[in-house]
Nucleic acid binder design. Structure first.
Length: 615
DNA sequence: CGTTTTTGACCCGCGC
DNA sequence: GCGCGGGTCAAAAACG
């Protein structure tokens, strides 16, 4: 009888809270904004120093550092210039000003001046600048200098200064130009170097992936055997989020719709019975199952069947759609509450005893919007497993944004991985290890299950060593000391990181979601789909994702928000491997706090996903 | 009084 | 074809 309110409220666990509270304020406040602004904008907005740091972090290892250095040099020069002559100063100031604009990050600003400069100057460079953000940055900076220089010259000429000054200025300009040219050339070289490094990096990653796959195949075995039909380069496909999105639907709406469909009702897939309202007509053979109700408003009956969607379809699109419908994101966290406080309003519409599990499974539906397809089923008392399906079809409150973002991102990740590669397992591990190398155990992807599912296990604590392995990624973003991230919090963060990374990736790809928390945060997917389709190289994706994780301030905020919401009721506890879920549960049973309060008696260990041995 | 939760029944798909 | 299990509906009850 305790109403669902419990889910909404954030309960702080004494233990967990300790660390998180510090973050809370910041997180909650900042997160929304963060989301709103595109990643690039952030960079631009941030001070030069920050941006530099960020950038350095973002980019792959050695490559990115170059640009930064260049900038620094320039800045120093400027400072010096100021001191000197009175006459020069004005010019210099201009230069310095200009130079400041040169800041690589500036290009993200959409600065009008820059735009103008760019147009004048070096279309070539710009054009040459591949989609790759880094390259663009580099080029831009150079361009600005060049352009500015010329502009300054004209300005000087116009000026009333004496001949001496004029000459001096000209000579200086000439010097500067020469320097600019030199830098330009250097920039090009660096660019080439970057390209090489990137290519090498990608190649290595491919190799790594291949190796991982081999390992994975051994471990997880071949749950997925059947799926491998399409083969292609797994890694590559995997990375291609765009592909997934693209397939999902060209339009934003479409994506959301399709997604929702999938998620929609119970299982997206099922549908058979229902209306065929939408009819997917078409196409894709499997669609039938999917019930595409694009509007998911009616809860209807779709009941479901899972299996249909087998990924064999030859068409990538088909696969994608099918997968999308089925995709699920499970979040496991220790919580005394019956539900996780993720900022959304959930209404319980059903409960059922799961086979083999002593505890009932509860079904919730998002009540924030009539048609919201997102649903979750909570299980377990101590370990609360929340499975999200579909995307919200309405604006989300800030508090809910983090989780939604995470889940949607994770879902996309999953989809992109399972779909493209066709080989679920590989991707799963790949993601877990590549994206979350430090916590492979924290993120589990189950392609074998009827529904591809990404399980984010917040109940686990990554080993310190693991965390240390990627200090950059985690530490950099956080304003607060990494210490806070330790243990439980770290565990909580990982999932978010995973999701956010993907999320950012999509952004970087060019899309920017409605950051405003707009109605469909998720809706952005569709947009991203469109644009993403254009981009995407494995390398880019990986690099971007990795960099984004570390660099994007928003990410930090998002993590904090997510943690706050997630951990509100979470308990810290022992390290449990996913496999141990049941064991953990049993232990937890003693707690039983939740049970008493709620008739729901949620509880139990069983996880819907195949990954977890149910019983 | 309105909203939410509870709970039994029903629907549907899948496996045998 | 039957049984099982997952998922949902909807009336009744409980809660604020």
């Amino acid at each position: 009888m305790a109403k669902g309110s419990g889910g909404l409220s954030i309960d702080s666990d004494p233990i967990a809270t300790g660390g998180f509270f510090l973050h809370k304020p910041t997180v909650l406040t900042s997160f929304p904004e963060e989301n709103i602004n595109p990643k690039w904008k952030h960079l631009a907005a941030t001070s030069a120093t920050q941006s530099m740091d960020v950038k350095a972090t973002r980019s792959p290892p050695s490559t990115f550092q170059f640009p930064v250095k260049l900038i620094n040099t320039n800045e120093h020069d400027h400072d010096h210039d100021h001191d000197p002559d009175s006459s020069l100063p004005s010019d210099n100031r201009r230069r310095s000003t200009v130079i400041d604009e040169m800041d690589f990050f500036a290009d993200k600003k959409h600065d009008v001046d820059r735009m103008t400069i760019i147009n004048n100057g070096t279309d070539d460079l710009k054009d040459s600048g591949s989609p790759d953000g880094l390259e663009l940055n580099l080029n831009t900076g150079l361009n600005l200098l060049t352009t500015n220089t010329s502009s300054e010259q004209s300005t000087v000429d116009d000026g009333v200064s004496s001949n001496m000054e004029d000459k001096r200025a000209k000579s200086e300009l000439a010097v500067l130009r020469a320097e600019v040219e030199r830098m330009k050339e250097e920039n090009l070289r660096l660019k080439d170097m970057l390209t090489h490094v990137t290519s090498n990096y990608n190649a290595l990653q491919m190799d790594l992936i291949t190796l991982l796959q081999g390992q994975n195949s051994h471990h997880k075995d071949e749950q997925h055997d059947g799926k491998n039909k399409d083969d292609g380069i797994v890694p590559r496909q995997f990375m291609d989020l765009g592909l997934v999105a693209a397939t999902g639907g060209g339009d934003t709406e479409d994506l959301s719709l399709s997604t929702s469909e999938g998620g929609r009702r119970r299982d997206p897939t099922r549908s058979s019975g229902n209306n065929a309202e939408n009819n997917n007509e078409d196409g894709t053979g499997e669609q039938d199952k999917k019930g595409t109700d694009q509007r998911e408003e009616s809860p209807d009956q779709g009941r479901g069947s899972h299996k249909d969607a087998r990924f064999n379809s030859t068409k990538s699109v088909d696969q994608t759609e099918a997968t999308i419908r089925k995709a699920r994101v499970s979040v496991r966290a220790r919580s005394e509450d019956a539900t996780i406080s993720d900022g959304c309003q959930w209404r319980k519409y059903g409960q059922k005893m799961a086979k083999g599990n002593p505890c009932p499974r509860a079904y919730y539906r998002c009540t924030m919007a009539a048609g919201c397809p997102v649903q979750r089923c909570a299980e377990d008392r101590t370990i609360l497993t929340t499975t999200y399906e579909g995307n919200h079809s309405h604006p989300l409150p800030p508090a809910a944004t983090a989780m939604a973002s995470t889940t949607s991102s994770a879902a996309r990740m999953l989809l992109s991985g399972s779909m493209s590669s066709t080989d679920g397992p590989m991707n799963s591990d790949f993601l877990a290890r590549t994206i979350l190398p430090c916590s492979s155990s924290l993120a589990t992807i189950s392609a074998s299950s009827p529904f591809p599912t990404v399980t984010l296990d917040l109940t686990q604590n990554p080993s310190p060593l693991q965390l240390l392995k990627q200090p950059i990624q985690f530490q950099v973003p956080f304003p607060n000391p990494p210490q806070n991230l330790a243990t439980a919090s770290a565990a909580a963060l990982l999932p978010q990181i995973l999701g956010q990374a993907l999320h950012n990736q999509s952004k970087s790809s060019g899309l920017q979601m409605s950051q405003d928390m707009q109605p469909n945060r998720l809706g952005h997917q569709s947009q991203s789909a469109l644009q993403q389709g254009q981009q995407n190289s494995l390398a880019d994706s990986l690099t971007t994702a990795t960099a984004a994780i570390a660099a994007d301030p928003n990410f930090t905020a998002a993590l904090a928000a997510a943690i706050t919401s997630i951990i509100g009721g979470a308990h810290q506890n022992n390290i449990n491997s996913i496999n141990n879920v049941q064991t953990t549960t049993s232990n937890n049973n003693s707690n039983g706090n939740i049970t008493t309060g709620n008739n729901n008696s949620y509880g139990h260990n069983k996880i819907t996903n195949s990954s977890f041995p149910s019983d």
